[in-house]
């Protein structure tokens, strides 16, 4: 693949990652949010695949396939199971309403561009220009964890943070070692499992999936 197509593929995939992050802020239906998460995971895998094909790095291609499998299919399925308890689940009353969240996401993206300038200057490859997108995804994920109430939204926020970190790692170093990537993915998988158990417990105890109910447990 020549370098122009390589770059445009990379830009489209990375753009898709942050677009999906913004979609999770825009949509209220939790099913739609999880769908956006799945698309984001696949886009992230595509970034790794494109990088691997371009650099003829077999390990990176393997990682890309694994990422598509894990973040595109497996983890979203797990999250979807949390929703099975609440069929018509919607993020009814987020702390910050949707238009304001979208403005906030814009501001965070600006901040990400500003804050990563030194990092971008360090990375010599053309892929380095896209690093702020990963950073913006991370900030948006954090933001959605703060402003959303449902347990499922919290999980999604955490996964956005992880995807952002992974994107920065792929773009900055042309792939972290397989072992590190696997370790990080496994970590996140474990967190998702724990959160799923927590959500199920929350459902069975309080019949809601609203984290504000946990405040009752305060000493």
């Amino acid at each position: 693949m020549n370098s122009a197509t390589y770059l445009s593929f990379l830009e489209i995939a990375a753009g898709l990652v942050i677009l999906c992050a913004i979609v999770t802020l825009w949509r209220r239906s939790l099913r739609a949010i999880v769908r956006a998460l799945a698309v984001q995971g696949m886009a992230l895998g595509v970034v790794a695949l494109v990088l691997g094909l371009h650099h003829h790095d077999d390990v990176l291609i393997v990682v890309g396939c694994l990422v598509v499998g894990a973040k595109g299919f497996f983890i979203p399925t797990l999250v979807k199971r949390v929703l099975a308890n609440e069929p018509m689940s919607r993020e009814t009353s987020p702390l910050v309403n949707v238009p304001a969240s979208l403005v906030g996401a814009g501001a965070l993206t600006f901040l990400a561009y500003g804050a990563t300038r030194p990092v971008v200057a360090l990375v010599s490859t053309s892929a380095g220009r896209l690093i702020p997108l990963g950073f913006a995804t991370l900030l948006i994920g954090f933001f959605s964890m703060v402003v959303r109430r449902k347990a499922a939204s919290q999980i999604v926020g955490l996964l956005l943070v992880d995807n952002g970190i992974a994107l920065v790692a792929f773009l900055a170093t042309a792939g972290v070692p397989l072992l590190v990537e696997l370790g990080a993915s496994l970590d996140v998988l474990l967190v998702v499992v724990v959160l799923r158990v927590l959500a199920v417990q929350l459902w069975s105890k309080f019949a809601v999936l609203d984290l504000d109910e946990l405040q009752e447990l305060h000493d």
Partner: peptide, 17 residues
Amino acid sequence: QNGSVRRYLAYGFVALV
């Protein structure tokens, strides 16, 4: 600390920003 998970997350987020 009032026990709200989101509040603790917000502390971290605001500090990061």
